[in-house]
Structures are given as structure tokens and as C-alpha cells.
Amino acid sequence: MSDEKLILQVNDLSIVFGGLKAVSELNMELRKGELVGLIGPNGAGKTTVFNMLSGVYTPTGGQITFWDKNGKVQVVNKKTPAQLNLIGIARTFQNIRLFGNLTVSDNIRIAMHSQRNVKPWDAVFRTKKFFEDEEVMSLKVRNLLKLFGLEKKENELSSNLPYGEQRKLEICRALAANPTLLLLDEPAAGMNPQETKELMELIAFIRKEFNLTILLIEHDMKLVMGICERLYVLNYGRVLASGVPEEIKSNPDVIKAYLGSEAENLA
């Protein structure tokens, strides 16, 4: 485990839907700079955990503590997605949620709105400050797209991109918010083996380049085992096991509940 300080601590986190506990007494911690995987069978509660961490759902029990961009400790259970985005938590979704009728560039710009350095009247009256800020934003967008190999697509509608590039654009948009914690919900879903390999390299690159902590949900075990430093395994809304990949892939409870015969391919 990293020797860096905590960036996220989850204590006894629970949520109830119609009398059913979807997640029950979850405990988890992430340290600055870690790349951690959250795995488990379908319906185990992984995306529900992400929805609580990103403000989509409000937990019915427990506490989420986050060390924000300025190092300030905050309890964030009741913060909205927009509020969490401002203090350093960004995410992608299992089902791609780009603005399909907007260009690639505009999808990135939307995520940068909180970083604008202008007042409404600057935009209305097209002041010098407005044009200077526009140039700064444009440069940031181009630099981000270049990192993802999308700079030549900046004026295309995002809906016209191939599937793999849409996945990249969604990660790129999350990074545009300048997060310290990035939540990736099945980023390799629907990708072929070559695209998945490129994605692994990209995730490793952006973690270092942007000094990120990353929590990753993924069903591709080769990706998970090849890139994550630690893993949490969920089953029926509870943590079944946690540890380094070598421990997890040989854990009999995990093999029985989730990995099954796939564990042999990971040995």
C-alpha cells in the first residue's frame, strides 16, 4: 500500500432501497496516488457504491470522508455531484454519457466551467478578459485532447466517434474538471482486446501525469490484475475480501463467489 496520506475514507456505508440493503456497512480507504479496483459479481453493489461516492445517491447510513484539493477534510455524504466535482471528485459511467449533439471540444469545455475566470458581463460585452479566458480554455482543451489522441477530432460530434474513442473522451472530460480522485465505472466495457490494452496503458499514464488517485470498477480481470495495486471484492453489497491482486485471485471465497474457473487463467 502507498505510504501517502488518506484521500478517501468510507466507514460503515449503507443504502436501502425499498427495505432492501443494496450496500451494507462498507468500509474502504484510498491513499493518495493509489490505483484500486472494486470488483464482484453483477448486482454486487459496485455502481451503487460509485453513485454514493459521487453524490448521485445519498447514503442512508455511514460516513464518507474526503481530503479535498486543498487538503481540507470534509464529510461529503450529502454533497451533490456538482459540489463533489468542485472539491476534486470526478467519475465516468458504465453507460457512456457524452453530449452526443455537441462537438468533442465542447464536451470538454462543459467540464471546465468551474475553472472560468470571467464574470457574466465579460461574456455579454465580450471584454478583453473574456477573449483571454477563451484562449486559455481552448489551449487546455487542445492539450487534453492531444494526450488522448483526439486532437484531430475536436470539431466532430461526439456521437460520431467510434466506441473506443467515446470511452476515451468520457475519461478526458472527467479529467477536465481537474480532479484528485477519479472514479472509473467499467471503462473497458465493450472494448476489444487491443483497445483494452491501450486503455490499461492510458490509465497508468494519466494517474502519473495528473497525480491522481483512481478507483476502478471492471469485469475484465486481466485489466484489473494487471493495473490495480489493491482490490476490494463486493458480494451482496458487502466487502467479501480486500488485498493485493495476488491475494485476491487465490482467495477461495472470491473464487467461489466470483472468479470461478477464470481464476486458473489468472494464475
Score class of each variant (00 low, 15 high):
Ser2Tyr: 14
Asp3His: 12
Glu4Leu: 12
Lys5Asn: 14
Leu6Gln: 09
Leu6Val: 10
Ile7Thr: 09
Ile7Lys: 07
Gln9Asp: 11
Gln9Asn: 13
Gln9Trp: 00
Asp12Glu: 13
Val16Ala: 11
Gly18Cys: 02
Gly19Asp: 01
Lys21Ile: 01
Val23Trp: 14
Val23His: 06
Ser24Lys: 13
Ser24Tyr: 09
Asn27Glu: 05
Leu30Cys: 01
Leu30Gly: 04
Arg31Met: 02
Arg31Asp: 01
Arg31Trp: 05
Gly33Cys: 00
Glu34Gln: 06
Ile39Tyr: 04
Gly43Trp: 13
Ala44His: 06
Ala44Cys: 02
Ala44Ser: 12
Val56Thr: 06
Thr58Asn: 08
Gly61His: 04
Ile64Thr: 11
Lys69Leu: 13
Asn70Lys: 15
Gly71His: 03
Lys72Arg: 14
Asn77Arg: 10
Lys79Ile: 12
Pro81Ser: 08
Pro81Leu: 06
Leu84Glu: 02
Ile87Pro: 10
Arg91Asp: 08
Arg91Trp: 14
Gln94His: 02
Ile96Ala: 00
Ile96Arg: 05
Leu98Thr: 07
Leu98Ile: 11
Thr103Met: 05
Ser105Asp: 11
Ser105Gln: 11
Asp106His: 01
Asn107Gln: 01
Arg109His: 10
Arg109Glu: 15
His113Asn: 14
Ser114His: 15
Arg116Tyr: 10
Lys119Gly: 03
Trp121Met: 14
Trp121Asp: 07
Asp122Gln: 09
Ala123Ile: 15
Val124Phe: 15
Phe130Glu: 09
Phe131His: 13
Phe131Cys: 00
Glu134Gln: 15
Ser138Phe: 00
Ser138Arg: 11
Leu139Ser: 11
Lys140Ala: 15
Lys140Ser: 15
Val141Phe: 01
Arg142Asn: 13
Asn143Thr: 09
Lys146Ala: 13
Gly149Pro: 14
Leu157Lys: 09
Ser158Pro: 03
Ser159Asn: 00
Ser159His: 03
Leu161Met: 05
Pro162Asn: 03
Tyr163Ile: 00
Gln166Asn: 04
Arg167Cys: 05
Arg167Pro: 02
Glu170Met: 04
Glu170Arg: 07
Glu170Asp: 01
Ile171Arg: 05
Ile171Asn: 04
Cys172Asn: 06
Arg173Phe: 08
Arg173Ser: 11
Ala174Leu: 02
Leu175Asp: 07
Ala176Pro: 07
Pro179Asn: 09
Leu181Thr: 08
Leu183Asn: 10
Ala188Glu: 09
Ala189Asn: 09
Ala189Gly: 04
Gly190Leu: 14
Pro193Tyr: 14
Pro193Ile: 12
Thr196Gln: 07
Glu198Phe: 08
Glu198Cys: 05
Met200Glu: 10
Glu201Thr: 14
Leu202Asp: 06
Leu202Cys: 05
Phe210Ser: 05
Phe210Leu: 13
Asn211Leu: 02
Asn211Ile: 04
Leu212Val: 02
Thr213Ile: 08
Thr213Val: 06
Leu216Val: 11
Ile217Cys: 08
Glu218Met: 06
Glu218Val: 02
His219Met: 07
Val224Leu: 10
Val233Cys: 07
Leu234Trp: 01
Gly237Leu: 02
Arg238Leu: 07
Ala241Pro: 04
Ser242Asn: 12
Val244Gln: 12
Glu246Asn: 12
Glu247Gln: 13
Ile248Pro: 11
Ser250Cys: 02
Val254Ser: 02
Ala257Lys: 03
Ala257Gly: 03
Ser261Asn: 12
Ala263His: 10
Glu264Arg: 15
Glu264Asn: 12
Leu266Glu: 10
